[in-house]
Structures are given as structure tokens and as C-alpha cells.
Design a protein around this nucleic acid. Structure first.
Lengths: 225, 225
DNA sequence: TAGATTGTTAATCGATTAACAATC
DNA sequence: TAGATTGTTAATCGATTAACAATC
């Protein structure tokens, strides 16, 4: 009598979910009604097998001989991604990055509403970014709990990031989206997603140089083998 | 006589390189002279085996009985990542995001110098963002070629992204760092690195909801097996 | 030399792909 | 019904981990 064993979904699968979601959204726009794993895979560059395996991690959404109903599948994936309920966010740090993020209307379109920014700089506390108020950092705990904020966006300099997370740990926040270039830590009740821009830039830089490396390695291997 | 076969480095390895780089940089700061794969792995959460396998993709940087020289390894990885030469960048799109990125001094610290921003809005063309000039989009081809720009950052709305890439394809640009939420396409001579912020946010949202799903699946599995 | 730790080969693990019976 | 396409099991592939001889 094995107790409900939790088969964890691999990160690779999870990272593909937004791709499915986006693709299905576009198909929906084009009034496509049904789609096969074959065709969906073709568009996204996945194999039909992978599409079916991925989706079957979450349920049986298709129908033999028919394929998947685009609208239904879109909704199911939205549900899986938690996009069926509204999320309330705050942005901590109202510098350039914080303001840029606050200016992004895409988030709101998908149900992520930015309720406030927080900063310590008295020069900007009290101002607004596109209707969104900038409050004093000292009020953040109260605000987050009172307004049932789900997600905090960390847009402060690397030195302040961990201390902000520690403050947030005292609230009912459930997720942290971290833009500071440090690996921040919090209790297991808070989910952290890191956006490491420098890592991404370095990866680009690596790939721009790759051919040089490959040559060197080819020579080296030639000697050895 | 197999011709120099190119053993491609997997993306998983490449994405770990910036982590090694950062960690070694911090060790260097602390004047640590040597480190074993064991200890390096412990800090980063990798196995010693993985550390050695990763590094041996690029060369033999260690020494039996000693480990790795921190400074030397740091420099080698910097070289692999292409951080030993300066890169010149332009940012296309001088809206909030473009300005935020232009304000990030971290890039410059690692040798990525932002030379100019480009926009079509006459209201901001001619202005400056922290000493960096904003030029008219029509001059971008000339500017990129004349100043030997390596990398273009795409910070325009999704609708303009592909058209900007098409323009850049006529230049000598080598890499594109794309912040627009679309999969842009270019010739194989240009490397593209996508930063899909929405995907990252959706992944966070998924993981915040995961426990709910796991329960449902556990029940479902209970029935089936 | 003895101890430590690498580079590298072999074993394991997990994720992707292929195959196919089930079924719409 | 016949054709299509799923859900799922089996095979393959690739990446991670373990083991160990080489060697500093």
C-alpha cells in the first residue's frame, strides 16, 4: 500500500509548458479547433512523442483519432500554470529595472497585477509609475499581508537582495521572482525563480566564441586519440 | 582517419559555466589559491565528478594531488566565455526596458560596453541615458558596422522584434540578445539568446501551484494503478 | 615516498524517442 | 467500419555519477 507517491515533474517538462501555452494561444487566435501531437510538435520543434509524454504528465487531454481540442488544452495548461487565478505582485526596488518591469503591460494581460512598488529612497517614495504607487519599504510587510500579495519581484542591487528576501519571509508571500544577480535563499514555503541576466549574456558570448574553441579542441583530440 | 569531429558541448554544460566563473571570482576575492573539484562542487551543489567532467570538456586545467589553481581556472573559464575581449553592444529600443538595461553597470564591469541606444521615437532620439546617446534607428546599420558592434540587444515591442532582427542581419553583428517575447529568426552566422521573461514568471507560477497538482495526480494515479 | 586528487572509463540514471495496442 | 491518433510501454540516447588507474 504505497502511499500516494509523488512523481515529480522534471524541470525540462515545466519549462516547456509556457511554450505550449503560447503556441496554443496563437492557434486559438487563428480559430484552429483541433490539433494533433504531431502538428503541435512540428510547430514547436518537439517530437510528437514528447508532446504526448509531456501532456500526459498532467492528464488525458486528447482523444484517439481526433487529437487535442485547442481551446480545452489551452485552458488546461493555463490552469496547470496557475494562470486561471489572478496573482498580485509587488516590485521591490523602484530603480530603472523596477520601473521597467512596472511598465510591462504584458504581465497584467496574463493575470499578474502589479499592486505597488517599494523603495527606500525618499525622493521616489510617494511618486507613481504608470498609476502604480511607490511606497516606503518600511510598510512592505503590512501591505503584502493586508493585500494578499502572492509574488514579490526583487529589483534591488545585489547587496540588498538577501535582506529584502529576509523581510519578505516574514510575510505571507508565496513566490519570489529575483532579478538581482545573487542566489537568494528563503524557507521552503517560498518558491524562488531566479532571472540571471548576466548568465544569459555570458552564454550568448560563449556561443559567439564557440567555433574558436571547437577548433582548438579538435586539434587537441587529434593529438590524443 | 576521421576528420576533426566536433564533439558539441551540451547546453547543460554551457549554462553551468557562468556559475563556475562567478564562484571562482568570489574565491579569488577571498584570496583562495587552490580548490578541489570536491570543494568547488560542494559550494555550487554539483558532484565532484560533474565538475571534473565539465571542465575536461575544455582542457586539462587541474593537477593530480593538488586540485585547480583558482586564478588560473578563473581566467581559463573567462576565456571560454569570451570575457577576455571587450564586446561592444547597442540596445535597440530606448523605452523603459532599454533604458533599464542601459543603466545596468554590471555589463560594463564584465567587458560588455553599451555604445548606443536606437529608437524611432523623435522625442527621445538625441537624448542620453547615463552618457549613452540615443540615435535614430535609420542610422543603425552604419553605426554597427563602423564601430564594430558585436552584440545587439532587442528591447522593442514584440511586433517590431523580427523586423529589427532583419535589419541587423544586414550588418556585421554576431550576437543578438532578445528581450522581446517572440522567437526571432536570423541566419546561422548570428547567435541568438532569448530572455523570455514571461516564461520565467509562468514557471514560478506553476511551481507555486505545484502542490495542488501533485495531490490531484496522486489521486488519479491511485485509481489507475 | 605516501596522500591527495586529477582525468577518464564504466555504470547508472533520467529523459527522449519509437512502437503499438487501445479506442475514438 | 476504416483511418487517425491517442495513451502508454519499451528501446534508445545522453547526461550524471561512480570508480579507479595515473600522477603530482
Amino acid at each position: 500500500m504505497a502511499p500516494d507517491e509523488i512523481k515529480r515533474i522534471s524541470l525540462a517538462v515545466i519549462r516547456r509548458l509556457p511554450k505550449y501555452h503560447k503556441c496554443l494561444g496563437e492557434l486559438l487566435q487563428k480559430n484552429v479547433e483541433r490539433i494533433s501531437s504531431q502538428e503541435l510538435g512540428r510547430i514547436l520543434g518537439f517530437t510528437a512523442s514528447q508532446v504526448r509524454q509531456d501532456l500526459n504528465n498532467f492528464g488525458e487531454f486528447g482523444q484517439q483519432g481526433y487529437g487535442y481540442n485547442v481551446k480545452q488544452l489551452y485552458n488546461e495548461i493555463a490552469k496547470i500554470l496557475g494562470l486561471n487565478t489572478e496573482h498580485k505582485m509587488v516590485i521591490v526596488g523602484a530603480g530603472k529595472l523596477g520601473q521597467a518591469l512596472a511598465g510591462y503591460t504584458d504581465f497584467e494581460r496574463h493575470g499578474f497585477k502589479i499592486m505597488a512598488l517599494f523603495d527606500i529612497d525618499p525622493k521616489i517614495v510617494g511618486s507613481k509609475v504608470r498609476d502604480i504607487p511607490v511606497y516606503d519599504m518600511k510598510d512592505i510587510i503590512y501591505f503584502v499581508n493586508e493585500n494578499e500579495i502572492d509574488i514579490a519581484v526583487i529589483a534591488v542591487p545585489r547587496e540588498r537582495a538577501q535582506e529584502v528576501v529576509d523581510i519578505l519571509s516574514k510575510t505571507l508571500i508565496k513566490g519570489i521572482w529575483n532579478f538581482a544577480p545573487v542566489e537568494v535563499k528563503a524557507g521552503s514555503n517560498i518558491i524562488i525563480e531566479n532571472v540571471h541576466l548576466l548568465d544569459s549574456l555570458f552564454t550568448l558570448s560563449y556561443r559567439m566564441n564557440e567555433s574558436k574553441w571547437m577548433e582548438r579542441l579538435a586539434r587537441k583530440d587529434g593529438k590524443k586519440r
